[in-house]
Structures are given as C-alpha cells and as structure tokens.
Design a protein around this nucleic acid. Structure first.
Length: 803
RNA sequence: GCAGGUGUGGCGAAAUUGGUAGACGCACUAGACUUAGGAUCUAGCGCCGCAAGGUAUAUGGGUUCAAGUCCCUUCACCUGCACCA
C-alpha cells in the first residue's frame, strides 16, 4: 500500500467535491464544531494540535454522516510577541513571517486530512478581519466600557521591554537576567469587572464541563463580605474589606498594602518615612505569588505616627505595611485578627503583636483558628462585649447590622476579577483606533476610516522609554484630530493577542462580510458554537475574555445570544516520551510530519485518539504507535476475507450493533480511546472468521472513517461501495445489542468464588438455585449456615454464610 | 499562597446506577512459520504460591451483603494565576 498516494488521492477528492464546505442555510440542521485556532509559530504543527483537531474532526465527520450541516472551520491567531521578535531579529515584516508559518501549518493540516471548511479561513492579522476587531473596540469605547488608567508593568531596563509576569519570574528578566523594575504606564482598560455578575450568571446558559465552569467561577472570585470604615487618630479614614466581620473584636492591628494608594495619601504624616519608602521599594521587586505565599514569612514595617481607632471599642490600634496585602484587591487594606487568620497570626508572631481570641473552640497559641474550621459547627463568640455567647453565624449578622446602623459598614460583593488591561507596548498587534488631540483629548477614529493599518516598515527597535515601537514611526503617528482638524497623534499601543480570539468564532459564521463583522442572519442560522474544544490552559482566561466580549456585543444588540458557546471541553497535553512537556531544549519533540511519512496520517490520527483519556495529559510512545499501525494493517488484511453479501454475518450481528452504539456514544462523549478499542475488538472478531461479508467490512470501515478517513475510503472503494464521506452513518438496533445469556459472578461473603450463565432477566430464585449448585461455590458453603443471599439479576449473586 | 486536577500491572489505560478490577493496546516470555523479521500466527502475562488459595486500585480509617466507585484522614505529583499564546 502506498499510503502517501492514497492520502493525496482522497484529499484531492474532498477538495474537488467541496465535501466539507458548509452553506449558510438548507434543510439539514446546523451543527458548529470548533477547535481553538493555532498561533502559527515557526516550530510548525505540534502533535498536541493533532490530538484535538482529530478529535473534533471525528465529531464533525460523524455528524455530517448523521445528516447535519456541519461547520468545522480553521483560521490563524497570528498577532503576538514571538512573531514580532522574530521579525526584529531578521529585519523582515512580521506579516511575511506569519505568511510563511501559515503556509507550513496549513500544509501540515491538509496532510492529516482534517475536514476543515477552508473557504472560511482567515487570520486575525488580515486587515479585513482586524478592521472589525478595531470597530468593536470603538463600540466598547463609545459605550463607556474603555478607559485609560495608570498601571504598573514589569520593565526590564536592559532589554527596554515590558515583560509578562512569566518572563519576569523571580524578579529578573528571563532573557538577560537583569533585575526587573515596576514602571507606571498609562494603559487602555476594558471594564470587565463590571460584568462579573453577568459572567457568573451566564454560565447557566452553557453546557460547559463542570470543571470548566469552576475555572470561570474561581477566576471571577466572588466573595461576599463587609466593607468597613476605620477612622484614623487626628483625622482621616480608610476602609477595609473582610469576609469575617464576626472577628471584629479580635482586631489588634491593621495592615495596608505597600503598593496601594492609601500609604501614598498618608505619607506626609508618616514619621518613619525612610523605613516605609524602603519597604515599598522592596515590595516592587516581588510578584504577587511571592508576596502571598504562606510559608515565606511575613515581612513588613510599622507605619509610625499614624494610628487607627477600632470602630467599636475605640481603642487605638497600630497600622503596618505588609506585602501579603495587595493594592489592587479589595480596598488594599485589611483588619488583622491574628487569632483567627493564619497570615495575620504569622505577621503578629514576627512583629510581636497582641492577639485576642474571640471565637471559642480551640487553643490559638500555636496557630490561628480559622473560618473554615469554626464556621457551621456551632462555635460561639468570646471577648466580644454584647455579642459574646452568640454563635458565629448569629454574630456575623448582628455585628453587620450594628455597623450598618452606625453608618460605617456596607455589605459588598468583592471580585478577584479585575478590569482587562487592553494595551500592549508592541508593534505586532491591532492598532488601537484612538487619536489624542491637545484640545479635544482622546477621540475615536471615524468608523469609516477603518481599518487602521499597521505601517509597512521593517525596523521596530525597542524604544528607550517602553513606548510602543509604533511611537517612533512619526509618519504614522502624526495625524489630524477627527473632531477639530488640528494636528494630533495616534495611540501607539496595540491590542493584546486575546482581542482577536475573543470573537473569531462569530466571524466563521459569515467570514467574507465586508459590511458587518457577521450578519445577524448568519449568526441566527448557526445559532451558537455547539462544541468548542481547546487546551486546559485556556479554559479560564480566553474563555472568560470571549464570553465578556460576546456579552457586551449582546447588550448592544449585535449578537443573538448572551452566550454564544454551548459546550466547552478541554484536552490534555501530549507530553514527550519522558513524561515532560515537549520542548526543543529537552530534545523530546515529535514532529507530526515525520510520523505521517513513516506511518501514514491515519495511523497517527488513530494513535492520538487511542493514547489515553482525552482530557488527561498523555506521554508519547512510538511503540504504542506501532500497535496502531498493526491495527490499520489488520484492517487492510481483512479485505482478503471479504465475500459477497449485503447483510451482516449472523454471528457478528450482535457485536456490530453493539459497536455502532459504542463508537457513536463514545465519540460524542470524549471517549475516543474506548471507541477505538471497540473497533479493535470488532476487527479481531472478524479476523477470527474464515470470511466476512461486504456489508460487515463496509460497516467497520464506516465506523473507523472519522478517525482514519483515507485508508477507509480507499478500501471501501475497492469493495465497490460509493464514498463514505457521502454516505450515512449506520444505525443500530437496541434489541440486538442485548445478549440473551449473561455470565454473572457468584460471591461468598463478598468474594468471588465462581460464575454461572443465566438467561437475561432470569428469575432470582432460579439464578440462586443454579448458583448453589456450582461446584466451586459448594466447597465454600457446605456445612455452613447461609445467613443471607443477595441476587441482583443480570449482575451478581452474593451468599453470606456464618461459621 | 490561591484555584483546579490526578493517583489502578513493567507501560498507556478500561470499568452506566456501588455488583466478576485490569477490556483494548504496548512491552515482555515461550512456541510455530520463515533466507530474513520493527511481518504474521498460537499460548502466557497484577503480585506471592507447585497448587489449593491468599492478596491487590497512593495512605490510614469508615459506611455496605458488596467499594477503584460513597464519606473522612494523610501523602505525592501535575496545571493555571491576568503583557507567552
């Protein structure tokens, strides 16, 4: 067999017959299968891509055969830093690099026979596409959802580059090892935090996997609590957020964030300025993770000259700086109750501070007695004046009421999710279509002037001050104000990579529309994405950004549903054979091209589906791959056993019906590995026979076709059938999937001692009688007293004996 | 730190509602065929044991006639954490 030739032949057939092109409309019900579009890096297609594309391809191919109008599109998420860095290094335009990479990726995908509708292909870097990304940004702006704010960023003074937290891990630049500093920059923000409640609520209208929903919920991070005002001795006040107001009498100090606004406001009154300033500087070097890690000790310093007044007892309480309090979460200040919060406890130990236990239940000299331990178990308050003796739950409510009536506290929901920082100081992104005019301030571009194209230059040396490389291209920057016509300057920041990927699934529904990003008719026809697959690493952020983007479009009437994605599933990674993430440096990378060349596309596809649980990581094994090659070889050899016959062989009929049922069910429930194993079992059964009918063989090929589309089409053609891709999926008869005789186990005292063959749904008494006559069982029960018998028809017999 | 996930043979893994643990595949062992074998076929294959049998799903406990599955405990590993995509 010449696999390469067969693969080309059928790939050409599909292309010529436009087999996989979806039409907007028609009789068939629509079904939209989506897989995350890749970032076309220089490394080419990864075997991890092959795993998810094959899985979704199997679903798409099966659904087509089942009579659906299937949309299975593919495109390119091609803006971003790697392409830009590559371009700088090689003095070429990133668009040329991207073009090359897309060509490679597309060729690789075609060689694997994915049933993508290539007529809908686009890249986020196409001006026809990013025109609409820019247009949508303008809608955010016009609806008050975009604003500018000063935000600290990681800055490497040597590379003169803004770094991600990842690239700045450990406080040093990943590339050059220079110490990273925090630098304030004015950035565009999208008001995503204001959608927190809607994004939680919208999950009800989705069918996301439970763990995906949890990921979203945790990222949003809602917590209900109380915001409490605290007066400062000699004037002024600040607020703290707490979820444990019941511990208010246990406050012995307050901690405020070194990176927050509050300390800056208080600074003029601080007596130990040098110490405080030094601590703030020190904090700037640490990441949030370093700061909040529990076992690293609690650093900090006292703020001298300023004391707080306890809101109820009116006692004077000291104020400290501590880097475990974050400036951008809650109010940037916390009330410290060392007896009932472990972080406060450690801080108090470190700085020799007082502790007051206010909830009874256990000793607090060694560690804090925290809410997860005292809530819901009836613990009562102590040392809390009029609230002493109340349960924690009662106290929570009554203390809140009292503080509210005093006018110094409010019940609030707090969210971890912050507004979306939408600016990047990069060249290779969608330019933000805003213009700054000395007179008019920030003015949006006229929509009819979109797209705002990136300039066609080949040098983007980094700037000295962290501004976007675009800022140096003066021809491009200088423009006129759309409002007053005076000279003005363009925004030089670009959008994050997440922008283009937040709405691409809508564009596939209507990819060539030059009047709208997608017509309402097209979106109503496809309804929503039925099944979206991507990596686990995207289930929190990308999905949240995309849902926020869509909800906004819905609220301004531009999409038909608030949630445009119905089911979301996530796949595990394909690891190297050493069980490590594949990487060049580890030398464990498998190139799909090599596998296709040596083993064929179908073998690679089948192997990646068979390798393990789809949702878990799985290490690569070339040995296992060979096993799948043997399976395909066996399928080919089976053709020699084929004889005329347009019905299933009698002795295979039941197994065939069972297999149809299982493959269908498993393919729609992420059980690709067990679907393949069911097909192996069927092939083995056929292999044991002298001959099989054409119909036997045809159904095997059809069931395997979604996974191994080339070889199955070829063999199917050789026995004289018309192409599988144009035929219908076989149906099964439920009756025929049920066996008349079943072998069940017999247990004595819960241990398996024998087995017995019984009729389907046989009477309990009759089953028991047979079981008691079983020779092996007799050995165990003879002379013993039978205390109890349990017979579960079609399942098991258990005989309980004594003595 | 916070959040999520995982733990079953030598390996990848199966196991509707609790109901014969290890399907299917890999590796391995023995044999057949063969000029040859990363080909094919036959048999074996969790561990201990000649066998009868015992024992086994990370750890320890619990519920049950019956637990990989339900409840509690301890441990180990993996992933994400907002400018990588």
């Amino acid at each position: 067999m010449n696999f390469e030739q067969i693969e080309k032949k059928w790939q050409n057939y599909w292309q010529e017959h436009k087999t996989f092109e979806a039409q907007n409309g028609g009789e068939k019900p629509p079904y939209y299968v989506l897989v995350e579009f890749p970032y076309p890096s220089g490394a080419g297609l990864h075997v991890g891509h092959v795993r998810s594309y094959t899985a979704q391809d199997a679903v798409a191919r099966m659904k087509r055969m089942q009579g659906y109008n299937v949309l299975y599109p593919m495109g390119w998420d091609a803006f971003g830093a790697p392409a830009e860095e590559y371009a700088i290094k090689n003095h070429i335009h990133p668009k040329d690099a991207v073009k090359e990479n897309i060509k490679t990726f597309k060729g690789q995908m075609e060689s694997l026979g994915f049933s993508f509708d290539w007529s809908r292909e686009f890249s986020t870097t196409d001006p026809e596409y990013y025109k609409w990304t820019q247009w949508q940004f303008l809608q955010f702006y016009k609806h008050g959802m975009a604003y500018k704010a000063k935000i600290p960023v990681n800055w490497c003074p040597k590379c003169k580059s803004v770094l991600s937290n990842e690239d700045a891990a450990g406080g040093v630049c990943e590339r050059c090892g220079t110490e990273v500093i925090q630098k304030e920059k004015s950035q565009w923000m999208l008001k995503m935090a204001s959608y927190a409640e809607d994004l939680l609520d919208g999950l009800k209208d989705t069918n996301f996997a439970e763990k995906v929903k949890l990921g979203q919920i945790n990222w949003i991070g809602k917590s209900k609590g109380v915001e409490l005002d605290v007066d400062i001795v000699c004037g002024g006040k600040f607020s703290v957020f707490t979820t444990c107001i019941e511990t208010i009498y246990g406050i012995t100090f307050f901690v405020i964030a070194p990176d927050g606004k509050l300390i800056q406001e208080l600074m003029p009154r601080v007596e130990n300025k040098d110490e405080v300033m030094a601590y703030i500087e020190e904090t700037k070097k640490k990441s949030n993770m370093d700061r909040t890690e529990l076992n690293k000790g609690k650093t900090g310093c006292i703020v001298k000259g300023i004391e707080a007044i306890h809101p109820i007892t009116k006692k004077h309480v000291p104020i400290f700086l501590g880097d475990f309090v974050l400036g951008d979460y809650g109010t940037g200040a916390v009330m410290a109750v060392p007896s009932h919060d472990q972080r406060d406890f450690e801080y108090a130990k470190e700085h020799n501070l007082e502790m007051i236990q206010v909830i009874d239940g256990r000793d607090t000299t060694e560690s804090a007695f925290e809410k997860q331990d005292y809530l819901g178990v009836g613990c009562k308050l102590i040392n809390s004046e009029e609230f002493t003796g109340l349960t924690v739950e009662e106290a929570k409510e009554k203390i809140t009421k009292k503080l509210e009536s005093m006018g110094i506290a409010r019940v609030v929901n707090n969210y971890k999710m912050r507004d979306w920082i939408f600016s990047r100081q990069r060249f290779w992104g969608e330019p933000i279509p805003m213009i700054y005019c000395e007179k008019c301030g920030w003015v949006p571009m006229d929509e009819k002037d979109l797209p705002l194209l990136l300039p066609d230059v080949a040098e983007y040396e980094p700037t000295d001050d962290g501004e976007s490389p675009l800022s140096k291209i003066t021809d491009w920057v200088n423009t006129t104000c759309p409002c007053c016509g005076a000279p003005a300057k363009r925004e030089t920041d670009t959008m994050p990579n997440w922008a283009g990927s937040s709405w691409y699934f809508l564009r596939y529904m209507d990819p060539h529309n030059d009047k709208e990003f997608a017509s309402m008719d097209a979106m109503k026809y496809w309804n929503r994405v039925d099944w979206y697959n991507g990596g686990m690493e995207h289930t929190a952020r990308h999905l949240l950004y995309a849902r926020f983007w869509v909800q906004f479009l819905y609220n301004i009437g531009l999409v038909p549903h608030k949630e445009m994605i119905w089911t979301r599933v996530s796949h595990g990674m394909v690891l190297g054979s050493d069980n490590e993430k594949m990487s060049k440096s580890k030398g464990n990378v498998i190139n799909p091209d090599d596998i296709v060349k040596e083993f064929s596309a179908d073998v690679l596809r089948v192997y990646e589906m068979f390798m393990g649980d789809y949702q878990s990581d799985a290490p690569w094994s070339t040995d296992s791959l060979r096993g799948c090659k043997r399976f395909i070889d066996k399928i080919i050899r089976l053709k020699d056993k084929v004889v005329e016959g347009d019905a299933y062989s009698k002795d295979l009929e039941s197994l065939i019906h069972k297999t149809i049922k299982k493959v269908e069910h498993d393919t729609l429930n992420l059980g690709y590995n067990t679907a393949i194993s069911a097909l192996m079992i069927l092939a083995n059964a056929m292999d044991e026979k002298e001959s099989i009918t054409k119909e036997d063989y045809h159904v095997l090929l059809t069931l395997l076709n979604p996974f191994a589309p080339h070889i199955t089409e070829e063999l199917n053609e050789q026995i004289g059938y018309s192409p599988i891709c144009e035929s219908t999926w076989p149906t099964y008869d439920e009756e025929k999937t049920i066996d008349d005789e079943i072998t069940i186990g017999i247990q004595v005292n819960g241990k398996l001692r024998g087995e017995v063959t019984v009729q389907k749904d046989e009477e309990k008494d009759s089953i028991l009688e047979k079981a008691l006559q079983n020779e092996k069982v007799k050995n165990f029960i003879d002379g013993k007293e039978i205390v109890k018998t349990i017979v579960v028809p079609n399942k098991i017999v258990n005989i309980v004996i004594k003595g």
